[in-house]
């Protein structure tokens, strides 16, 4: 066991160098990214983040370098073994696709004397906090990581993007009360586009169930919009790009903004399903403190914009955070698809 970390580091470096030489974009993630940024050294496994479309090639070059690929049942990662060491290649952490923007935000750091991209600390905490759930919410593991990385993190951004998770909210509350991280900026919502205040006030949500860490779906991260620091809050009422809606439909116009958040969330969820520009039944809408957060996956960038258009018409003047990601559906049937024999 004492040798485990050294063995892990050797494998970490071998995988990183192999991916770099093959020009496959990646970032070191998981607990080793935390270690690289000052956290405790892990003893279990090594995680790399990469786009789903790059996974087959990554597996290919790693197999050529002598690692042993295994195809796990999970649909959000794949695994390779370097001897006894398990290396995870993750493309859908906490159900969200790894995007080129996320990889670009990573910083080049020296990890045990090898330079490699390491996941951005803010992205890292978003994933870590969103991974907390009923069966896994041990803050004793999370707090040392917050202590280790706190000055590297945009905590307001973490609060915004994890606002829908009560577990993340709890972790951030504890960290705030312990003075580990700055308190929530109390400026009014209108002055802070996109903010969904993490503390206080319930969050009403409506829509498809959030799938823990195992989101299916092929992601072509290339089309997913980045997370511009202040571009998150899209001021509804003025169209994102000035386009006219593709087809006008009479769906009853504006909604009553005075009604309770949970009814509003439900009605917006229905509106997104019924409006032909979107027609997505699986989008999740949350309303908190007057802000509207919409999450889920659509097939094209146009449909993602249509989500913003529909919400802009339904609730003009409200702040909307469009966390909808675009998934690619194209990719030819790849040769690695397994055949299941039904007996």
């Amino acid at each position: 066991m004492e040798d485990a970390p050294r063995g892990l580091r050797e494998s970490l470096k071998r995988v990183a160098v192999t991916l770099k030489e093959a020009d496959i974009p990646f970032a070191l993630g998981g607990s080793y990214a935390c270690w690289a940024r000052g956290g405790p050294e892990p003893v279990h496994d090594v995680d790399f983040m990469l786009r789903e479309e790059d996974v087959p090639r990554a597996v290919e070059v790693l197999a050529a370098a002598g690692l042993r690929p295994v195809d796990p049942p999970e649909d959000w990662l794949t695994k390779v073994f370097d001897g006894e060491v398990l290396v995870d290649l993750i493309h859908h952490p906490v159900g969200r696709a790894v995007t080129p923007e996320m990889l670009e935000r990573s910083s080049e750091m020296s990890v045990d004397s090898v330079r490699m991209p390491v996941l951005d600390a803010t992205d890292w905490f978003e994933m870590t906090l969103l991974a907390l759930e009923e069966r896994y919410c041990d803050l004793a593991r999370v707090l040392p990581m917050i202590r280790a990385m706190r000055e590297q993190v945009d905590w307001d951004q973490v609060r915004r993007s994890t606002a829908a998770s009560p577990f993340a909210e709890a972790a951030l509350l504890v960290a705030t009360r312990l003075n580990l991280i700055p308190p929530v900026d109390a400026a009014p919502v209108a002055a802070r586009p996109g903010e969904i205040v993490a503390s206080g006030g319930g969050i009403a949500r409506s829509g498809a169930a959030r799938r823990g860490g195992t989101k299916g779906g092929t992601a072509e991260g290339g089309k997913t919009e980045g997370r511009a620091p202040e571009g998150i809050g899209l001021r509804v009422g003025k169209k994102e790009d000035g386009r006219e809606p593709a087809g006008q439909v009479d769906l009853g116009g504006k909604l009553d903004l005075a009604e309770a958040d949970e009814y509003l969330a439900g009605e917006l969820h229905e509106r997104l399903a019924e409006d032909p520009r979107v027609a997505e039944l699986g989008l999740e809408v949350a309303v908190a403190d007057g802000c509207i957060l919409v999450e889920g996956e659509v097939a094209t960038d146009d449909r993602r914009r249509a989500v913003a258009d529909v919400l802009a018409e339904a609730v003009p003047g409200r702040l909307v955070r469009n966390e909808v990601t675009v998934i690619g559906r194209a990719t030819a049937a790849d040769g690695t698809t397994k055949v299941e024999t039904i007996s």
Partner: peptide, 10 residues
């Protein structure tokens, strides 16, 4: 999570 699933039936 892939373009299509493949099944073999006897």
């Amino acid at each position: 999570g892939k373009p299509c699933a493949l099944y073999a039936v006897g």
